[in-house]
């Protein structure tokens, strides 16, 4: 897991789980959060659904939208924008839920989560060589959440680091603390 404060110089070209050689093609899903576009590697994505009804859970931090029924399984839904400290997602016509698998805590079974995003666009290919380092300044979201910068149609798009954003242990702790501490909730209400 990348820590948000890891020195940028050490990051450089991302390696990560898929140690692809320079000529390999990696597939990304392009999506939007608010007015910004972001990319996610397709290998973590299981499916994409139109907006589904979610059941909100009580006393949750703002990025927990609730849970949904995915063909009989109960799956948590995370507001990706809120998690990245962007304004919370307003449900609109194009709002989607992207179902992803992330590693569980202590290497247990991988966990399925739904990510609430404003819209999804397309899946595009990009050669590994085209991925660039994450800039230290100037990113809308915390650089720790970005894995690399990918060039698509001339535009530099941030590739999201899902394993950092959705680290199960961290999320569990954030959720548990929020539920028991009325102060944090008051602060959230004020924010």
């Amino acid at each position: 897991m990348q820590t948000p404060n890891a020195p940028i110089a050490a990051r450089g070209v991302p390696q990560g789980e898929d140690i692809a050689s320079a000529g390999d093609i990696v597939q990304f899903l392009r999506l939007s959060l608010g007015s910004e576009k972001y990319a996610v590697q397709i290998n973590a994505v299981r499916e994409i659904l139109q907006m589904v009804p979610t059941t909100p859970l009580p006393l949750m931090p703002p990025f927990v939208r609730g849970v949904m029924n995915l063909r009989g399984a109960v799956v948590p839904v995370v507001d990706l924008g809120a998690r990245l400290d962007l304004p919370a997602t307003d449900v609109g016509r194009r709002t989607c839920v992207v179902i992803v698998d992330v590693p569980g805590i202590d290497e247990r079974r991988p966990q399925t989560l739904g990510l609430l995003v404003d819209a999804v666009y397309e899946v595009f290919d990009a050669p590994v060589a085209d991925q660039e380092a994450v800039p230290r300044l100037g990113t809308r979201i915390d650089p720790g959440f970005i894995r690399s910068m990918v060039r698509i149609r001339g535009e530099s798009t941030a590739e999201l680091n899902l394993s950092a954003i959705l680290d199960q242990q961290l999320l569990a702790r954030l959720i548990a603390c929020h539920a028991t501490d009325p102060l944090s909730e008051a602060l959230t209400a004020l924010a």
Binding site: V64, A73, V74, V75, L113, L171, A172, I175, A176
Partner: peptide, 11 residues
């Protein structure tokens, strides 16, 4: 049905 690992610590 279990709620999901992220919710394991809530009471």
């Amino acid at each position: 049905k279990p709620l999901g690992q992220v919710f394991q610590d809530i009471k």
